[in-house]
């Protein structure tokens, strides 16, 4: 089980802020493929992963980073702080 968090327009498109997902995905990219196959709202949110960022256990990571041992994954658009 992994906790999946969504922020900003990713959260809006999927209609959820957080969910627990049972997955065997080895990387964020594999998890994206699994989620996008679920329902159109997921496919819409993940249509262009170049427009997305991913964090593993609250640290920025790449879409091909290993998911082994990760408890929390978050998907969000590029950050607009400051």
């Amino acid at each position: 089980m992994i906790d999946v968090l969504y922020f900003a327009w990713v959260r809006e498109r999927i209609g959820l802020a957080q969910e627990s997902v049972e997955t065997t995905a080895a990387t964020p990219a594999e998890l994206v493929t699994e989620l996008a196959a679920r329902e159109p709202r997921y496919a819409a949110a993940f249509a262009d992963t170049s427009a997305l960022r991913v964090a593993l256990d609250q640290k920025l990571a790449s879409f091909d980073a290993p998911l082994a041992g990760v408890r929390e994954i978050a998907f969000f658009p590029p950050m607009t702080g400051g």
């Binding site: 590029p78 607009t80 702080g81």
Partner: peptide
């Protein structure tokens, strides 16, 4: 600090006007 806060701190801004809400792009 400002340069890194802009694009490495996880904040997202949304502008609210009479026409609706719009996420601010990076």
């Amino acid at each position: 600090l400002m340069d890194y806060l802009k694009s490495r701190a996880p904040f997202w801004k949304r502008e609210i006007t009479a026409e609706g809400a719009q996420w601010v792009g990076a």
